[in-house]
């Protein structure tokens, strides 16, 4: 549905978006990750036709956004950053306006408005003016506007920004549900959202795509992916790491905590320690040494660590510092 090819946007000397390409098909939810100012919003503004690209092509549903903007825009629902809405209108008036702009009139308009009011839980504020709404309600009002014509393509710029945890959860559920039939792109800097709602994620930094894959693939790029945490009672942590170092499956180890008689240590796998071999060898070690094992757990990769190590190449990734403890 969405096809972006080598997109570039320059603002003066700054290349805000520098050669981004991706495609999104129906049934996909693409998460856009990246630090502030990475070019997420600029990319979305170009895809929705708000700003023209400096170079590159964007097509939505087969229509080129630059050459056939109206046909492309008909297929898109868009929630801009900060969820703008006309302050002097009521929620009902605003949604009716949005419906009418999408070519819905009369009964069809009334139905569409009722549908989104229900979907976005706006019943209690429909007659309230937009400038008296709390941030959460205003956000949902603007979100309602973006889905009023049930578009096949949905572009959401930070859809959960400014919502409380319950509302965040509702919006994520809504996105995941709608993602079964639509092509959705949404940006966020909340990493857990990628797991909660995306089928695929792209990490953008300084206008370039630095990672692209399913949430699992991205997580497995983490240092911690496949590492094993081990909690032992009554033995100093230094003794534990000394023993761990002797194992062929362990590349390095790190003391996580040592308190109340318990030592918590994390072991990172060598190539031959992957796929459970590490955990097995650690268990055997514990049995041999007669350690009182309180916990033995293989860790999943952590999205925030992947994010940090990818988007901060100048500073040393946190994981590398653990080398010192070996």
């Amino acid at each position: 549905m969405i096809k972006v090819d080598n997109l570039v946007k320059t603002f003066g000397p700054k290349r805000a978006v520098d050669g981004i390409s991706f495609t999104v098909e129906r049934g996909e939810v693409l998460g856009f990750l990246g630090p502030n100012g990475a070019g997420k919003s600029t990319t979305m503004r170009m895809v929705t036709g708000f700003i023209p690209p400096t170079a590159g092509r964007i097509s939505v549903g087969g229509h080129d956004v630059v050459d056939q903007p109206i046909a492309a825009k008909r297929l898109i629902g868009y929630l801009p950053e900060n969820a703008p809405a006309y302050a002097d209108m009521t929620v009902l008036g605003f949604l009716s306006f949005a419906a009418e702009m999408r070519g819905l009139t009369g009964e069809a308009r009334r139905k569409a408005v009722n549908r989104v009011v229900e979907m976005c839980f706006l019943e209690s504020v429909v007659h309230q003016s937009v400038d008296t709404l709390s941030k959460g309600y205003r956000h949902r009002t603007c979100f309602a506007q973006s889905i009023i014509h049930d578009p096949p393509v949905l572009i959401l710029d930070e859809p959960t920004d400014g919502l409380d945890p319950n509302q965040k959860h509702e919006v994520r559920t809504l996105i995941r549900r709608m993602g079964e039939k639509k092509a959705i792109v949404f940006s966020t800097h909340i990493l857990e959202e990628v797991d909660a709602a995306c089928t695929r994620a792209i990490i953008i930094d300084r206008g370039k795509i630095v990672a692209n894959g399913t949430p699992e693939q991205l997580r497995s790029r983490s240092e911690q992916a496949g590492a094993v945490a081990l909690r032992v009672a009554g033995i100093p942590a230094a003794d534990v790491t000394a023993k761990l170092r002797e194992l062929p499956t362990v590349r390095k180890s790190q003391v996580l905590a040592e308190a109340a008689g318990f030592a918590t240590v994390r072991a990172y796998p060598n190539p031959d320690g992957r796929n459970g071999a590490l955990q097995e060898s650690l268990f055997e070690l514990a049995v041999r040494q007669n350690w009182k094992l309180a916990e033995l757990r293989t860790e999943e990769g952590r999205m925030d660590e992947v994010f940090r190590s990818i988007t901060l190449p100048d500073t040393m990734p946190a994981a590398n510092k653990t080398e010192e403890s070996k």
Binding site: R45, T48, G49, F50, I70, A71, K73, R74, I76, Y78, P80, N82, P84, A85, Y86, A98, M101, R102, G103, C142, Q145
Partner: peptide
């Protein structure tokens, strides 16, 4: 910021 809404409508 509603200009962004208005001009991304068809």
């Amino acid at each position: 910021g509603t200009i962004e809404l208005l001009l991304t409508m068809p």
